[in-house]
């Protein structure tokens, strides 16, 4: 009876479709979040702790991709909150004013970038910023560890790093090398930081960089370098040194942007208040692995949200200013 089978199959599929079209149950408040994959664990953890009081969706389109959705031409496709591992760029601010989106900028944590080497590397304990620059720039011509510092042995140096699409790459290259054109590209790049962990842990001359959380999860396989910012006192990245700001300049702020339209909705507002009130335990949760800001900073952020202070504090900001100084600017 092949025909009957075929027909009943088609009928079944048809009803399955109809069932799918059926009425939907009344919805909870939705909160649409997208953006940086670095910030995503923080928001996911917050959503998890917040529970079923709202329908929270977190996407991972990357910082730039997230801003594209945050500033969509069509209001109903716009996300409510955009995660960013770098401050909003001037072109994105321009786009925001063009499509008519006013946004509130909130800092929610720090991420330290750890520069890691193989544990068998017994010569390098710390590097200075100029030495890092020589390693990662095109015109540095570094082939062996001896090229980095004369006292190091003549062991070939192998580089590992995040891919050019990642916010970590942008931040590291901008901070260490300066101009993107001068960044080396003749090494193993991977969007998956676990590949960098594998590479450096199997290569005696290896060196790589990524977020502190990846070093903490692999402390037995890797060694971390202290970074000398220029005063002769190298500092290793840790919760304490990143939080106090002494691990400098390789720490970056993690930010979220919320549109004033979304912030006016009770669902989004209560979620963000919850996030800022519980930020410390969320951000420093061992499975999230970032560094919390000082408590005053979260109070500043909550006030900012209450007063709906729009715009970015990073526009034309000087690099040597601390995050706290930047956010204090609009106080008073």
């Amino acid at each position: 009876m092949p025909i009957r089978v075929f027909r009943s199959l088609i009928v079944c599929l048809f009803f399955a479709t109809l069932y799918g079209c059926g009425p939907t149950t009344p919805k909870k408040q939705t909160v649409r979040i997208d953006g940086s994959s670095t910030v995503q664990p923080i928001m996911t953890a917050a959503a998890e702790l917040y529970g079923d009081k709202a329908d929270i969706r977190v996407g991972v389109s990357g910082t730039g991709g997230g801003f594209k959705k945050f500033l969509d031409e069509r209001p109903n496709l716009r996300t409510d909150i955009s995660n960013a591992s770098r401050p909003i760029k001037p072109v994105e601010v321009e786009l925001a004013s063009k499509v008519g989106v006013d946004f509130i900028e909130l800092a929610i944590g720090f991420d330290g970038i750890a520069v890691v080497i193989n544990p068998q590397n017994d010569w390098a304990k710390s590097l200075t910023m100029p030495e890092l620059r020589r390693i990662w720039s095109r015109d540095g011509n570094v082939k062996t560890w001896k090229d980095v510092r004369d006292t190091f042995p003549d062991v070939p140096i192998t580089l590992y790093g995040p891919g050019t699409d990642s916010g970590t790459f942008d931040f590291f290259i901008e901070t260490v090398v300066g101009e993107r054109e001068n960044a080396r590209s003749d090494y193993t790049m991977s969007e998956d930081d676990n590949v960098i962990v594998q590479g450096v842990s199997r290569d005696k001359g290896g060196i790589g960089y990524f977020g502190l959380a990846y070093f903490k999860a692999n402390e037995n396989k890797l060694a971390v370098l202290g970074i000398d910012p220029g005063d002769g006192v190298p500092v290793k990245p840790s919760l304490e040194t990143v939080r106090s700001g002494s691990y400098h300049p390789l720490s970056r702020p993690l930010l979220v942007y919320v549109s004033t339209g979304a912030a006016a909705r009770p669902g989004v507002q209560t979620f963000l208040q919850f996030l800022l009130e519980n930020a410390e335990r969320i951000v420093e949760h061992p499975k999230v692995g970032y560094v919390a800001l000082p408590p005053e900073m979260y109070q500043l952020a909550r006030r900012r949200l209450d007063r709906k202070v729009t715009g970015t504090v990073f526009a034309g900001a000087r690099q040597d200013k601390s995050l706290e100084e930047l956010f204090r600017v609009d106080e008073g």
Partner: peptide, 12 residues
Amino acid sequence: GAVGYIRSVPES
């Protein structure tokens, strides 16, 4: 636009 994290199953 599939999301990375969501606490519900599709209903429609």
